[in-house]
Design a protein around this nucleic acid. Sequence first.
DNA 1: GAATCGTGGAT
DNA 2: TATCCAAGATT
Length: 352
Amino acid sequence: MKKELLIRRSILAWFRKNKRDLPWRKTGDPYAVWLSEIMLQQTRVETVIPYYNRFLKAYPTVHHLAGANEDHVLKLWEGLGYYRRALNLHQTAKIVAKDYEGVFPGTVDELQALPGIGRYTAGAIASIAFGVRAPVLDGNVKRVLSRLYAVKERIDRSDVLKRLWQIAGELVSPRSPGNFNQGIMELGARICLPQNPLCGGCPVKQCCEAFLHHCPQNFPVQKAKKTLPHYEVVAAAIYKRGRFLLGKRPPGGMLGGLWEFPGGKVEAGETHEQALKREIMEEMGIGIEIGEHVLTVDHGYSHYTVSIHLYRCSHIDGRPRALYHSEIKWTPKSQFNRYSFPAANIKFFEHL
DNA sequence: GAATCGTGGAT
DNA sequence: TATCCAAGATT
């Protein structure tokens, strides 16, 4: 039997017996499949499950989501990370509700034209929800294929990616594309692990060049990762008459749409006090007096790490304006739970 | 093509 | 403790 056909059948058979009972596998609703795929981007299955369930309960259909308030959507996304996904999700819901009358398109090209849906996600939705024979190539599939075919070149090379998409397209089952795609991803997530793969339980080990050469750990070949820069950041808990001055971060950038205590990076040669007064003047046009240091939180973002030093502050002069944020608001602590905050800010709450 | 964009669990 | 990295998309 041809290698590709053997791989296809073996993975389908393995998946049929070993697939996890995940909430998005109980439905064929394209809306639910789409939601799960967006949430699963760069995010672990176990992390997504509770978010997915809460989200679907709050917005059972694309129409509910299309009519939702953005702060509410971001609140349901709070803690999931990559918040632009939530904003794109909201945008796509509006487009589907309006331009498609609430019915998701079923082709890869139409799906990929929607905000937040790239080649992987379009293939996943088309194959899983619509039975289209479209391949997927995520981190799992890249790893599985790079081992099956002993790909010795770096997998971030465009020519290598092109070849992997080509292979994935040949492997995907014409009759059960959704099951095959989920199967090869599940194989990568549970058997063909990045470190110490469980080759003994692998249904395709006899087809796997890396296994046959006893070197699965050599694949995939990744590019070297650079160490993340670290910054010192100051933030202000500006308090007046029972309320804190919060800002909503502008869309498009880091943590876009989330609320925060204002502040910013400490520049070279600055004291914390100097940096905080400068930042608050730049961002809100007001003068402040710096009070006690509340606490310092160490936090890692996607491409840098920070130590955020929070200070209690009082408003001295000027009327606050949203010079940086899209919106600012004096907010009592009792209402913080209505807004979505970055994880690092949430660590502040119990100390205020 | 290389940067940007979060978070928390595993090792 | 430090590092890795997970069902990627966008610019």
